[in-house]
Amino acid sequence: MTLEISGLSKTYSNGVQALKNVTLSIPGGMYGLLGPNGAGKSTLMRILATLQEPDEGRIQLGEIDVLHQKDKVRETLGYLPQEFGVYPKARAGELLDHFAVLKGITTRSARKTVVETLLRQTNLWDVRRQKLGGFSGGMKQRFGVAVALLGNPKLMIVDEPTAGLDPAERVRFLNLLSELGEQSVVILSTHIVADVSELCTRMAIIHQGRILQEAEPLKAVEALRGRIWRRVVEKSALAGLERDHSIISTKLLGGRTVVHVYSEDAPAGFEPVPPDLEDVYFSAMAGHLPPKTGGPEKEARL
């Protein structure tokens, strides 16, 4: 099953254009949507999760027209929003059970199994009788995952899931996701490059409502080989460097600044560095797109 997004645009009533003619083709498996804050990730995710209407465009999930058959989508959708709350006075097990009914798992015994499995998977079994009001951020997030996983969704939308998790929680969570990716379309939006590089077989970089690049992470990294250069400088020297070089990222390391630049040739004073996905991301953001066989922009022009 693939998810086909074509020509999606959305402008908010305050004038912010959140999505500009987005076209993507998302196959089964884990798909990363990488972009900075405010890039339009959440808008896209909410549209996919049937909570928002685009101004233009079409979305097709297999046989389902996502924009017009919302009920159908919801039957097979798992959604973990970037932000959500819980009823503070409800117990975890009880609320998950409630959701299970709402998702259509109506036989009592099936529901009991599903709820128990999910609570164990998300490591919430021991606290299932506790009130959600007392949950930590990570526990809440895991509860959200449990809700999203109810009923083995064919389409899983996960919006910035690891933002508030500690490293251990994050690993546990990513494992859960990758298991699910074996049988469904899982879209993971994030601004954390590592999430994508660790999990996703395909990815897209989105910025200011546009898809800048759609690629497989490994291939994209490969394409950058030999074009990323590194130099460690004092902070004060940064402004000078910026004039002469195309800096894609700066990073602090032990009080000094590590500068990555993009260049086809070796710039003076820089050492070569093997690129990683982060460099792909920042290069794309800085406008250095690798030569591609068929980017979304081209398709749009056709």
């Binding site: 909410r46 999760a49 049937t50 909570l51 009920d71 919801r74 039957e75 959708l77 959604y79 929003p81 932000e83 959500f84 709350g85 819980v86 009823y87 503070p88 959701f99 709402l102 998702k103 259509g104 959200g144 809700v147 999203a148």
Partner: peptide, 12 residues
């Protein structure tokens, strides 16, 4: 409470 994104996307 902010629970609605979970609930509104359920098939109800």
């Amino acid at each position: 409470t902010g629970l609605y994104p979970l609930l509104y996307t359920a098939p109800i």
